[in-house]
Write a protein that binds this DNA or RNA. Structure first.
Length: 411
RNA sequence: GCCGGGAUGGGGUAGCGGUGCAUCCUUGGGGACUGUGGAUCCCCGGACCCGGGUUCAAAUCCCGGUCCCGGCCCCA
């Protein structure tokens, strides 16, 4: 048998059902915030990524030559496509509030919360330089997490590249790269490693610690900090999620120009569940008109980790109806009953096996149907159905006309 | 790309050099059952990841690969 490719996943019905429900919730939240859904190609010219993303991402792409000899790649992220779409249309009314849920591909070593093919929600606001856009984006992120049932299990951490750069310039000049590296890994490295890195690079321990704890901000007066405070208060007042300013959130991506954010589970047991920020130069870098932009992306893999840990990765009990004919008269009649009920918009499963009533009930039970409709010669004659409630085991014979009303409530 | 730990029917497992056709549960299909038996009983299908090697003998030991789980790098 041919095996599934490394790092790829199959989604069987039990799981796909959960997955669709989660995506539906995410999309609902976006729409409630006035965002419009978009979609793009899964394959793009590699140049689109070469421009912006740097070497690292180039090494992780599923790239190939198409039959026309073009170097193309499965998309590893959304921002380049988004920028291309924005640049191509000069008539778009700003600000744009767009979201998408798409598949992405990156050739990496699979591990917890990481696969080679994954889904990602992207939500962006383009055309606004205001911190209000950052606040709205953050608020949406919080709302989505709340809607997914993990608003209490996660927190949003926000920061500003501009702010941290100013701090570095005032207190640790010339050490930008080292400070970024250190803050980004502060919790991961642990005290000892942090200590030895500080010593090695000649960074003042007192100062860097006041960065990591945020103590430095207590006495600071700065317009960028002021904005950040307002974003924090904005999200706070939506009461969806915990939010705090954290100077340790720098995000690795080179193109962030100011505001950055990240969300994770409270204990930080998992990777960050979403990340994003302001990227005012990307659209222009890709050849478009200068367009300020802010947004975030949320992958499905870490989300799955967290939902499972919180016991929220569960199938909704859906019920449904199974039609079980027991003789040839019943089989003919069943087709009529099925289409009658389907007209009402009900989901109706009809036996397609050569089976007796016992095995049909067995099947219906295993599939989780709430009702079984038993149909035979007698029902066919009387235009009735025998309706069996699979939870209680109760069964009664009712006229088909009345059955409609009863079953319609199930929809 | 690098580093750990794994891999036995669809799922969960027992066996860890030879004594039983590779164990047990579950799942799947069928039969008894001819309108209530989602029960019970019975039958059937289905596996030692792949390729080399060591050995009289390999699921079992060794090497390589593949895949899985986890970590590093990186996280767009």
């Amino acid at each position: 048998m041919v095996e599934r490719l490394r790092g790829f996943r199959d989604f069987y019905p039990e799981e796909q059902e959960i997955r669709s429900e989660i995506f539906r919730k995410m999309k609902d939240s976006c729409r409630q915030f006035g965002f419009k859904e978009i979609d793009g190609p899964s394959v793009e010219n590699v140049e689109l990524f070469a421009n912006k993303s740097g070497m690292e991402i180039m090494n992780q792409m599923f790239s190939f030559k198409d039959k026309g000899g073009r170097e193309v790649s499965l998309i590893p992220e959304f921002t380049p496509t988004l920028s291309r779409m924005v640049s191509a249309r000069k008539d778009l009314v700003k600000p744009l509030k767009w979201f998408s849920v798409e598949k992405f591909w990156r050739y990496e070593e699979p591990q917890s919360g990481r696969t080679r093919e994954f889904f990602q929600l992207n939500a962006d606001i383009l055309g606004s330089e205001s911190y209000l856009a950052d606040a709205e984006i953050s608020s949406l992120a919080g709302h989505i997490l709340k809607n997914l049932g993990i608003g209490n299990a996660t927190k949003l951490k926000i920061n500003s590249r501009i702010l941290i750069d100013r701090l570095i310039q005032s207190y640790l000049p010339g050490k930008k790269e080292e400070v970024y590296y250190l803050l980004d890994r502060w919790n991961k490295l642990g005290e000892e490693e942090v200590g030895s890195y500080i010593e090695e690079k000649g960074i003042d321990k007192e100062i860097i610690t006041s960065f990591s704890t945020g103590r430095i901000l207590e006495t600071m007066e700065d317009p960028e900090l002021q904005k950040l405070n307002e974003i924090r208060d904005y999200v706070r007042s939506s009461e969806a999620i915990k939010v705090e300013i954290d100077l340790k959130i720098v995000r690795g991506i080179a193109y962030y120009t100011g505001f950055v954010m990240e969300a994770s589970d409270l204990e930080e047991k998992f990777r960050s569940i979403l990340g994003g920020g302001r990227y005012d130069n990307v659209v222009a870098q890709l050849g478009g008109e200068s367009t300020p932009a802010t947004g975030f992306a949320m992958g499905d893999a870490v989300l799955e980790n967290i939902l499972k840990a919180k016991g929220l990765w569960v199938q909704k009990k859906e019920g449904g109806i199974f039609l079980a004919p027991i003789d040839s008269a019943g089989r003919k009649y069943a087709i009529r009953v099925a289409s009658t009920l389907r007209e009402l918009g009900l989901g109706v499963d009809l036996n397609v096996m050569d089976r007796g009533i016992s095995k049909q009930l067995d099947y219906a039970s295993k599939m989780g149907y709430e009702y079984v409709v038993i149909l035979g010669e007698s029902e066919a004659k009387q235009e009735s159905i025998s309706l069996k409630n699979m939870t209680t085991g109760e069964q009664k014979e009712i006229e088909l006309k009345n059955a409609k009303e009863i079953l319609e409530k199930l929809r």
